[in-house]
Simulated assay, not measured.
Amino acid sequence: MRIADIDLGDKPLFLAPMEDVTDPSFRYVCKRFGADMVYTEFISSDGLIRDAAKSVAKLRTYDYERPVGIQLYGNEIEPMVEAARVAEAARPDLIDINFGCPVRKIAARGAGSGMMRDVPKMVEMTRRIVDAVRLPVTVKTRLGWDEDSKNIVEIAERLQDAGIAALTIHGRTRAQLYRGEADWTLIGEVKRNPRMHIPIIGNGDIDSAEKAAAAFERYGIDGIMIGRATYGRPWIFKEIRHFLKTGEQLKQPSVHERVELAKLHFAKSLEFKGDKVGVLEMRRHFSCYFKGLPDFKPTRLKLVTLNDPAEIVATLDYVAERWGDFDTSEIVPQPLSHDV
């Protein structure tokens, strides 16, 4: 599969952009486990053109994570065009437009999936951004606004005509948020549409190697984007790739292996964000890496309240010592409650 000149190989796996999750440290560990393409957290166009520190910081990418995309969202065309130019100057491999975020505060003002209520504006914004930058432009969106307006087949054609290089579709409407099961049938319909010639990437509820393999087989999509299932489980990319090649399941990482991964992730978080922010932003990951261990609550509370990096590392070492013999095949993955 190719996005413009970016060769992603056969059946590539994408890390979904997720607010407060896909920072450089998390992207680092996902790349280590085989994510073929990663994205920044989504960035507000308004914040970017106002030079807001938080938005500008999200532009930072690194050569080791290429190919990497910067994802933008906004509800007005001119600021989005300007933000795309700013993002291009940060030297990503592509720019992705978020037309999929269902969060009320985003969608209610017409950004994210809220743009699905004004398809002409969505298409015009996309066309203007494509014309404004030299990098490939891609889009992530949903099936439609609600059950009565699942218009993704039409939208896909119009976005392709506007010049996008690839399209990612989440298999829910905005009204569904993340409730119920993702419906991949319309994703497959977009892919089978003879008018479509750009890559189609499917997204929604892929939380196992078997589901990924079945999605490739059943719907013919070019790639799969994985969001919530990566949280606390970045090795899912390795699991899927192994299953696609061999038809066999990989053994789940041991507690010792999870501890070493958590320590690496933590070290990268401190490296990229400094001690204070690095500690705070790792707390959600610590909870998920070890979810399912018996009698873990007191240790979890330490990991999410300690502020001293050395004490946190010592606590992780204690986890390896205390639960080192636990059979991790008994742990049922608990996905994150949202992605964008």
Rank of each mutant, 00 (worst) to 15 (best):
51 D>L: 11
47 G>M: 00
66 R>D: 07
92 P>N: 12
31 K>S: 09
73 Y>D: 10
93 D>Q: 13
94 L>S: 08
76 E>T: 08
60 R>Q: 14
45 S>D: 14
86 V>D: 02
33 F>K: 08
35 A>G: 11
97 I>Q: 03
61 T>S: 12
75 N>D: 15
80 M>E: 04
83 A>D: 05
72 L>C: 06
120 P>W: 14
66 R>Y: 04
83 A>C: 07
113 S>N: 08
72 L>F: 00
47 G>K: 01
66 R>F: 05
42 F>G: 01
89 A>N: 11
111 A>S: 13
43 I>Q: 02
37 M>R: 06
86 V>S: 04
97 I>Y: 03
50 R>N: 13
32 R>Q: 15
84 A>C: 06
91 R>V: 13
50 R>F: 10
84 A>R: 02
79 P>E: 10
90 A>D: 05
26 F>G: 10
65 E>T: 01
73 Y>S: 02
48 L>Y: 03
66 R>A: 13
25 S>T: 00
123 V>Q: 13
39 Y>H: 12
104 R>V: 11
96 D>W: 01
105 K>C: 08
67 P>G: 12
52 A>F: 03
77 I>M: 14
121 K>R: 15
61 T>G: 11
96 D>H: 03
71 Q>M: 10
30 C>Y: 03
38 V>L: 09
57 A>G: 13
114 G>D: 06
85 R>V: 04
101 C>M: 09
105 K>Y: 13
75 N>R: 11
53 A>N: 04
59 L>H: 05
58 K>R: 15
115 M>H: 07
95 I>S: 05
65 E>V: 04
54 K>Y: 10
50 R>K: 14
39 Y>C: 06
105 K>W: 10
71 Q>Y: 08
55 S>Q: 04
65 E>C: 10
79 P>K: 03
103 V>L: 07
87 A>K: 03
44 S>W: 00
27 R>S: 13
111 A>C: 10
26 F>E: 12
31 K>L: 04
77 I>G: 06
68 V>H: 03
102 P>V: 08
84 A>H: 01
57 A>K: 13
42 F>E: 09
93 D>P: 11
41 E>C: 08
70 I>A: 01
25 S>N: 12
109 R>A: 01
118 D>T: 10
110 G>V: 09
121 K>S: 15
113 S>V: 01
101 C>I: 06
115 M>N: 12
82 E>C: 06
93 D>T: 08
118 D>I: 09
100 G>V: 05
80 M>W: 01
36 D>E: 13
62 Y>M: 09
52 A>L: 07
64 Y>H: 12
119 V>N: 07
114 G>K: 02
97 I>H: 04
36 D>R: 11
66 R>C: 06
114 G>F: 05
26 F>K: 11
35 A>F: 12
108 A>P: 00
107 A>T: 05
87 A>S: 10
51 D>E: 15
69 G>A: 08
115 M>V: 14
60 R>D: 08
